[in-house]
Design a protein around this nucleic acid. Structure first.
Lengths: 148, 148
DNA sequence: TCTTTTTCGTTTGCGCACAAACAAAATACT
DNA sequence: AGTATTTTGTTTGTGCGCAAACGAAAAAGA
């Protein structure tokens, strides 16, 4: 089996490495497609969340995207500064706030509709295969979430 | 099918998102395991490369790891500063150099042999499933590599 | 040979990821 | 009520990822 040290190191190199490279590669596919929209990939994910459900609290977005608050905070600020989203007070809690797209943010959604087809076309991978990949990745994510 | 804009955006959110989250999650699994070795994940990948094959030129490592030279350059410097690797001149080309583990770098390999089992144990995913995932990810990487 | 182009690694700048330390507000406890 | 604890978002520091501009050396072309 794969108990031999050398083989283990080799497999390790392949798996963790493939995951990291695939992630960077696919994000790299998005980059030129998102660039005209003025969005980075993480910013795109935040907008996707807010295009689907509004309003969302800061904490809710962080949880949905599995993003550290310390990471999300500056991203939200940039999106605000870009005029794509704006924050609103949440009654009864001065600590948090909710977020929603602005007029411009909603308008951007129309242009964003072209993004997924462009990415899928660029990848040239059948949709059902992408869904299988998503399921496979979900297993990994769940495995990590499972308490040690 | 998946031609409807809303569904496309939804699938997009799921796939690109799952890939990014899975990558970060798995690297997060490595973090506490690599921390005692004084390595980050990218640094670990460089060491893996040099534990398998020496000497390697800077450019060769960058190609193997699909890493931008601008990204690899500071990583190499940190590994040098940690005393784990050292550079040697390549005869006939003053621009580049080769890299190889130092004594300490080779010694670290022994401790690194425990890393893959620890990761696999933490994930709790069968090895054959990991290999399947690796193959699936390779397809994605190849798809991106395929010229548009 | 001399010039032009290509290849190399580095540096700078910007954004993201994450740990750690913080400050302020809400909640729980006594 | 008054204190302690928890929750929430921000800030700071370090490292990675990538584009762009750079300087130097090698290779190609004239």
């Amino acid at each position: 089996m794969n108990r031999l040290p050398d083989d283990a190191l080799e497999l390790d190199r392949q798996v963790c490495f493939a995951l990291a490279v695939a992630s960077r590669s696919v994000i790299g596919v998005y980059r030129p497609i998102l660039e005209p929209l003025g969005l980075t990939h993480p910013q795109y994910l935040v907008m996707l969340a807010l295009w689907g459900d509004v309003p969302l609290r800061f904490r809710e977005i962080a949880d949905m995207l599995r993003m550290d608050p310390a990471t999300l905070s500056p991203i939200v600020k940039r999106l605000e500064h870009s005029g794509l989203i704006e924050r609103a007070a949440v009654d009864g809690d001065e600590r948090t706030f909710s977020l929603a797209p602005t007029e411009a943010g909603l308008a951007l959604r129309e242009r964003a509709l072209d993004v997924p087809p462009a990415v899928i076309d660029r990848l040239g991978i059948p949709v059902e295969r992408l869904m299988a990949l998503r399921d496979e990745l979900s297993l990994v994510i769940d495995a990590v979430d499972r308490p040690a």
